[in-house]
Simulated scan of single mutants.
Amino acid sequence: MFPTHRPRRLRANPQLRRMVRETIVTTSDLIYPLFAVPGEAIAQEVRSMPGVYQLSIDKIVEEAKEVYDLGIPAIILFGIPADKDTDATGAWHECGMVQKAATAVKEAVPDLIVIVDTCLCEYTSHGHCGYLQVGDLSGRVLNDPTLELLKKTAVSQAKAGADIIAPSGMMDGFVQAIRQGLDEAGFQDLPILSYAAKYASAYYGPFRDAADSAPQFGDRRTYQMDPGNAREALKEIELDIAEGADMLMVKPALAYMDIIWRVKEATNLPVAAYNVSGEYSMVKAAALNGWIDEEKVVMETMTSFKRAGADLILTYHAKDIARWLGA
């Protein structure tokens, strides 16, 4: 074989390496998360996520314009309400933060795709993703009553102008309930991006600072998946596909690239990977300390997500990536 076969021949210079590269990251792969808060002219940096901000609606619109100008096709909106209650009113009310942000962005940047996170934890006083049994401090959510809240939330978000509904609460039957609600309300053509394989991960810590969504007691392990399970992820995606999901998400991404691969092998639907807050913050902290080359590490990570099978990547690095790709 050697010296006839010399793989280094195709690594000889940058142009040749670029020509034969198997996996490429583009701005079209990216989705940028944004956090909407009440008020005006507010841009409050998240303590544990350098470069990420809680933004008032006017600032969300400015950010959306910048994102669009960078060539990023989509954002995903999360809302932090002024008041919370056990009915998650801020999630489904027509004046909810996500609803107002979605409407404002679509009016200002109509061609930008607005994805909305359809969950309840940011809006409940206890920080869990649905109704709880009275007096139960374990964090066990009542599944079927919560489906009605999710259905109301999705329809309200659709009416506000959302382009894609992204339910993230990991309730059994949530895709079917939301699909039914959307169809009944006349939104048959609105796609659902399901958080189909969402793990109970320690990587979410900084997000809970950003979204003010940490549970007040218990944890989310009765509805989010056990990190040790892979076959269960395939079961979850099969159920979501049967219930009408149009796209599937794996969350987190970095420690779950094997799951991304398995999901991609098991379906022809588009697969998204969420490069979550803890993954972002680790890179940022190391870069700020001068321990790593941020651009090289981020681009290598994004390439790895694509190589594992992700078609779309939700990432807080999105704007930086777009600038690096355009440089």
Rank of each mutant, 00 (worst) to 15 (best):
T146F: 00
S138N: 10
A214P: 00
I164P: 11
I237M: 02
A245T: 01
L149I: 15
V155P: 12
F187L: 09
A242G: 04
D219F: 07
P145D: 14
S213I: 02
G169I: 06
A211F: 01
Y223M: 13
A177N: 05
D209R: 07
V141C: 04
V155H: 09
P167C: 01
M171C: 01
I192N: 10
L248A: 11
I192V: 08
D212W: 00
A230S: 15
M249F: 05
A245F: 08
P167V: 01
T222C: 02
N229W: 13
A185G: 05
D246I: 09
S138Y: 12
L190E: 12
A245L: 12
L190M: 15
L239H: 13
R221S: 14
D172M: 01
F207H: 12
V155F: 07
S194R: 00
D240T: 06
A230V: 15
D163F: 08
A245Q: 09
A202W: 10
A160P: 06
V141M: 00
A202R: 11
A185R: 03
R140K: 15
Q224I: 14
D226M: 05
A202T: 15
D240F: 12
R179W: 02
D246W: 13
A214M: 02
I241K: 12
D246E: 00
L150C: 00
E232A: 08
P145F: 14
G205Q: 14
I178L: 03
M225S: 03
A158T: 05
A214T: 05
Y203N: 03
G228Y: 09
G218M: 13
D246Q: 09
F187P: 08
D246R: 14
S138A: 14
G244S: 07
M225H: 10
Q180C: 08
P227C: 04
L254C: 07
G139L: 02
Q180A: 14
A166Q: 06
S201E: 00
A177R: 13
S138M: 07
Q216A: 15
P191C: 01
R140A: 14
R179I: 06
L248V: 11
D240C: 02
F187V: 10
P252F: 11
S156L: 04
L149R: 01
